[in-house]
Amino acid sequence: MHLPDIEQTCTELGQRLAAYLQQNNIEQPLLVGIRTGGVWIAERLQQQLQTEDGVSTLDISFYRDDFTRHGLHPQVKGSELPDSIEDRHIILIDDVVMSGRTIRAAMNELFDYGRPASISLVCLLDIGRRELPIQPDLCGVTLALEEGQLVKLSGPTPLQLSLA
């Protein structure tokens, strides 16, 4: 399987996000990356968009629905968000959307910080094995992986994709 060029995909995704923000009259969105790959992608997009607030981060470890099965990941770092996200337009960014469970956990955490005006989902890759009805608003590339295959993003510099 041929994996996409990450730098080119990030550049194109940034251009599409700029157009999306303009079409939807969203000014000064809050870019929120899901740790860790989503933060790396959010930082790339922020460099292109030059948003005022920089990049906020979410660590969803305590919000995962498999927390009781797998325990706490040893590298929990906590989230870094403004004190309130009340009435803000949130651009939630992740590297890969698959089942939808990570995004559900991220939204649960976001609502603990306030009631945003909107949440838009942007992801680098969609591998489409949904367990929940959650779809990205913008996606860099959709991949059809074989059963048992996973894609891994490593970074932050350089960003690289690999199959496992």
Rank of each mutant, 00 (worst) to 15 (best):
T9D: 00
L45S: 14
I60W: 11
E147C: 08
M1T: 15
V96Q: 03
L132E: 14
Q160G: 11
P74M: 09
D5R: 09
R44T: 04
C10H: 02
V96Y: 04
Q160I: 09
R16L: 08
S154H: 06
D5K: 10
H73R: 10
I103L: 15
C123L: 02
Q149V: 00
E52H: 12
L58K: 06
I93C: 07
D5I: 09
D65P: 06
S118I: 03
Q46L: 02
W40V: 10
A144S: 15
L132D: 14
V55L: 07
L159I: 00
V97E: 03
Q135M: 13
D53F: 13
D66T: 11
D126F: 01
E27W: 09
E43W: 06
P158W: 06
V32E: 12
Q28P: 10
Y113S: 01
I90T: 12
L3P: 01
I6L: 11
D59Q: 00
L132R: 14
M1D: 14
Q149P: 00
T157Y: 12
T11N: 12
S61E: 15
G78P: 06
G78C: 07
I34N: 04
T36G: 07
N24A: 02
I119E: 10
G148M: 00
V141G: 03
P133E: 12
L92F: 11
P4A: 05
L153S: 01
R130P: 09
I26K: 05
Q23M: 09
L110M: 08
Q135A: 14
V39N: 04
A19L: 14
G148R: 00
N24F: 02
A105G: 03
L121T: 10
C10I: 04
L163K: 04
H70P: 06
G33P: 04
L13S: 07
R69E: 15
L150Q: 13
T51L: 09
L153C: 03
A144W: 13
S61L: 12
V97D: 02
G37P: 10
D87K: 15
G54V: 08
L3K: 01
F111M: 13
I26N: 05
C123W: 00
S56P: 04
I26C: 06
D95H: 04
T68K: 07
L58N: 05
L150I: 08
T36R: 13
E146Q: 15
L124K: 01
D126G: 02
L153H: 01
D126R: 01
L13D: 08
V39D: 10
E80K: 13
L30H: 12
T36M: 08
P133F: 11
W40M: 11
F67V: 13
Y20E: 13
L17K: 04
D5E: 15
R44I: 03
D65A: 05
T11D: 11
R101D: 04
L121I: 15
P156V: 09
G54R: 07
Q28L: 11
R104G: 11
D137R: 06
L124Q: 00
T57S: 15
F62A: 12
L132F: 12
R130T: 08
S154Y: 05
I93P: 05
V97F: 04
